[in-house]
Design a protein around this nucleic acid. Sequence first.
DNA 1: GTGAAAGCGCTAACAA
DNA 2: TTGTTAGCGCTTTCAC
Lengths: 371, 371
Amino acid sequence: MDVKNIRIKDISRLAGVSIGTVDRVLHNRGNVSAKALHKIMEVLDKTGYKPNLLARTLSSNKKYIIASLIPDPSLDEYWQQSDDGIKEAREEWSHYNIELRSFYFDLYDRTSFRKKSDEIIKYKPDAILASPIFHSEALDFFDIIQKKGIPFIFFNSDIPEINPLCFIGQNLYQSGRLCAELLDMLIGANSHDLCTFAVLHVYEDIHNSVHLAEKEKGFTDYFKEKNNSNIDVIVLDYSKPDKILLEKELSALLSDPKIKGLHVTTSKGVFMTAESLEKMKRKDVRLVGYDLLSENIYYLKKGYVDFLIHQNPKRQAALGVSYLANYLLFKKEIPSKNFFPLEIISRQNLQSVQQSLQKSQAKNRHKPGSR
Amino acid sequence: MDVKNIRIKDISRLAGVSIGTVDRVLHNRGNVSAKALHKIMEVLDKTGYKPNLLARTLSSNKKYIIASLIPDPSLDEYWQQSDDGIKEAREEWSHYNIELRSFYFDLYDRTSFRKKSDEIIKYKPDAILASPIFHSEALDFFDIIQKKGIPFIFFNSDIPEINPLCFIGQNLYQSGRLCAELLDMLIGANSHDLCTFAVLHVYEDIHNSVHLAEKEKGFTDYFKEKNNSNIDVIVLDYSKPDKILLEKELSALLSDPKIKGLHVTTSKGVFMTAESLEKMKRKDVRLVGYDLLSENIYYLKKGYVDFLIHQNPKRQAALGVSYLANYLLFKKEIPSKNFFPLEIISRQNLQSVQQSLQKSQAKNRHKPGSR
DNA sequence: GTGAAAGCGCTAACAA
DNA sequence: TTGTTAGCGCTTTCAC
């Protein structure tokens, strides 16, 4: 029971070789006779040797640089949350010789993506965490990165063709289904009246059209499978909407009394829509949408939004860094996909979720008397 | 920018003393002249010295023992999930000289709690993670533990009087409110019919009566505040229920057509109630309850349960260990409360949540060729 | 009071 | 192909 951990020294003794040789086989560095190799492998297996990670990182005094590439958080609350996750991870890993450098691009300017990705290449990072928002630009960039053999992880958006080490994000199709279910529970399930649900794509730029399409598909599929002829689903696009215009369009839409619920597929669209609902005093229309933006939360509390799906951008980003750090330092295996849970936020569990997000890491700054 | 981390050696050089002396002030070990102390403190402050935790733990070759005290997981799926969390944490921290020893008591036998806590005292652990299910027994035990100065954390159940280092768990009152909201959304909000919701306490033992009362209070408060005279709430107790009996009682209860929704406050009560509903073919009654037991999930999928509140026992337990390990090794500060988010589980997000729970830590077992 | 030095388990450069 | 050795930053013992 109380076996102390086996050290390299023990392995070398048991195999009748020196620790240098053991180290060589542990790291496949070659220059080992077949006989020694065989013997060492045997001992390794029998003892179930696990390297001491502390000693490992302490000794191999390497500095690793991880670059992150995300939209500018100062302009967008959602990305601010991601950035918080990265900052938290930076703190956490700074002790382990991991340096984290952030690169921000403009969410609405693909050339800035290009510019920043060029900067990253010059910076020669050991790994990259990125949200490849601009498809074709990302394709070019990560093609180069891949050729250089630099590992990278995508989060929030995926580009499966370029095969990142891992994708971290949500299953958007399923989130569309979930929104459908929630609206269904709120209205449709018990109603025998005719009922129409509207999917609203409210967006300022086209670059996340794939996202929106997947959500839409999940939503419509849910009701297709339900096969209730009383329930109808319509889809509407509002690109580059301004408030006045959107309100007019919504007003027209909602003049149809069959419209009972809305599924807004973009985070900013949620509060824009909710604001219109408030002006129209239409609390009778149910609304489900995405993300804990402060304005969305405001309308959730006021009752104009019923459910928000939380993507947990903070934890997504932190996990991405954590994966890369583990990969670089410990060569840990990383799952190729990590789908985050679809978190349902309502008025009554909002506070508990917000609380659990604030938990900041205690700092390790020296305090005399501590040890 | 590229300042390499300051080492003890640097401090000693800057303060014109030896590293031994620096170490003495870092750990308040005395035997330092006022002058040296002053100078070192000054340098420490100026440089913002942060100790290298890796070197620290590697060097001070201490073994810490953490004891965990929870109900026997082999008899209860909920506690099995907690135990999984502890096992995961054991793996994770084994490299850091943290030994985790589990003590299990019988959930229905307070004397076994006493027995196991006696065992723990003999074991002389450096810290304890416990779920203090049996109030008075726990009171006695942790009084002793406190006098011995052994740090401890509670999870799942709290006993605020004895002031643990931290309590990890959910806000049960709020979870009652959440269940009320969900039922309200499922039925009440749009209905002008008379409507009664029933709170069902289905339990085998009285020891978690405080839990149940809090949930009940949250539930009833929600509807009190809503102040809708069409909505009524009743509360029912089924202690030590067998299936036959429970079904009879439920059948009687549900003969009242005003009963539209049930809030079952215990995890095992959920599937027992759902099973009865199935036998009675009463899919028209809505049911919200607690915990991802496999039987609860079964009935969720089948449509006899509408929402489950997930307490995430696995992550609660893992976090508890993590807190204690950080406290022992790094003297990290720990928040005195950590309320977990109230996670809403429905048919459509179930899979995504289960997926994210399975994520097992990649093992560090040696694989030749890795490093 | 203070400093020197050995050692924690591992890496990597160097000698043999 | 192998073994030896000097660190990584910190703790701790022991001699001065």
